[in-house]
Design a protein around this nucleic acid. Structure first.
Lengths: 117, 117
DNA sequence: CGTCATGTGTCGTAAATACTACACGGTTTG
DNA sequence: CAAACCGTGTAGTATTTACGACACATGACG
């Protein structure tokens, strides 16, 4: 959907400036995929990889897995599982927060974290 | 995952007691799928249908689409889109609400609805 | 008793997903 | 200058998703 590939390429290239081991080949090997595949991913020639691969890639590049998975056009399976257990409540909450400013969302997060229940 | 099929069958059969038009064939026709396919879905012989079909089926049976989609093991694409726009905030919020009791969740929903932002 | 509706068994398939394997030409480096 | 490394083009594949088409036996029903 967005520019998952180019973003990954950008991050990897920046890392590479300080560390020669961030080549397509070496990153691919550490992530557990074929170099040709990573190359295609970065150029957007193929769709973003699976959630599992995306998460391994995120960790390798020092990025937030949730953000990378989102960039890949997905939502983590564990989040989906939580939502599916109480679909009505979560659906309503999420739809209501759709238009809320970041700040409001953050306040709700903090409020819940400080556990007023 | 769960018992999507049998649940649908149960709902349809209950509706049928009052209304003869809730046969596999007629419901399938109204929902826009083949009767054989609906039959297989209800008996769990195949996986639950796509989100779109699940929603049409839910409406036909007078059920909550979000609940049906959840039963089908999925999360609506529109909810996923909302989450993907702010992955960090939503991921944290949802994970924090994982163990919260329904009541707490409901309070947050209400609080947000009454828009204190 | 014939027609019509019902549920279901069997078979097939188009499209998407998520990759691997191999090879090739260019660049770096010891 | 050769060995190693680099990115990438081409081709192929196993699996999953999401259905449709057709035919058949059973049972209700007017």
């Amino acid at each position: 959907m967005t520019h998952f590939g180019p973003t990954v390429r950008g991050i990897r290239e920046r890392l590479r400036e300080d560390d020669r081991s961030y080549s397509v080949r070496q990153v691919a090997r550490r992530v557990g995929i074929e170099p040709a595949y990573l190359s295609k991913i970065e150029r957007g020639e193929v769709a973003p990889p699976s959630e599992a691969t995306t998460v391994r890639l995120a960790k390798e590049l020092g990025e937030d897995p949730d953000v990378m998975v989102a960039l890949a056009g997905k939502v983590s399976a564990d989040l989906q599982a939580i939502i599916r257990k109480r679909p009505r409540l979560f659906a309503e909450l999420i739809r209501q927060l759709k238009e809320a400013p970041d700040e409001a969302l953050l306040r709700v997060v903090r409020e819940v974290r400080d556990g007023n229940w």
